[in-house]
């Protein structure tokens, strides 16, 4: 029995462990909203937040918005269609499905969330939940 472990064996073991970690799908985006499309901007407005995303060409019926606690999930599908006989010269617009979620530092009142979609811009107004609002305490 060797007193010290074989350095090559150790290195190989580490490499194998890293490889399994990398290929296990553990880090890959899962159906539970791990994607990064669409890009979002979050603004503070009064007590709550406003979340804005660019969703050009996505039909309202293809957008699925869910709110729970502090997390918002945006899922859907974007399709880009061409007429059948067309020959493409340039293709930059992307199509496919998307599913992402974002967690905010405040709790959201899910019943008061308003979603608007105009000109390819999705705006979600996310008011802070009543029980999450800070209470001011008077000194008696």
């Amino acid at each position: 029995m060797a007193l010290f472990p074989d350095p090559f064996n150790t290195l190989l073991g580490l490499q194998t462990a890293l490889d399994t970690f990398r290929t296990s799908g553990w880090l890959q985006s899962s159906p539970s909203g791990g994607g990064s499309y669409p890009p979002l901007n979050v603004f503070r407005k009064g007590d709550g937040f406003v979340l804005i995303a660019e969703v050009p060409g996505i039909a309202r019926s293809d957008l699925d918005i869910q709110v729970k606690g502090r997390t918002i999930r945006l899922a859907g599908r974007k399709s880009v269609q061409y007429s059948e006989k067309a020959s493409l010269h340039r293709r930059e617009r992307l199509s496919g499905r998307f599913d992402r979620s974002i967690t905010l530092p405040i709790e959201i009142d899910p019943d008061a969330v308003k979603a608007e979609c105009h000109d390819g811009i999705l705006a979600l107004s996310l008011p802070r939940a009543e029980q999450d609002k800070p209470r001011s305490i008077k000194i008696g």
């Binding site: 985006s29 994607g35 990064s36 499309y37 669409p38 890009p39 599908r77 974007k78 399709s79 992307l94 199509s95 496919g96 499905r97 998307f98 599913d99």
Partner: peptide, 9 residues
């Protein structure tokens, strides 16, 4: 072909 996830550009 529509099934893949959209990448951010």
């Amino acid at each position: 072909p529509d099934e893949h996830e959209i990448a951010v550009r």
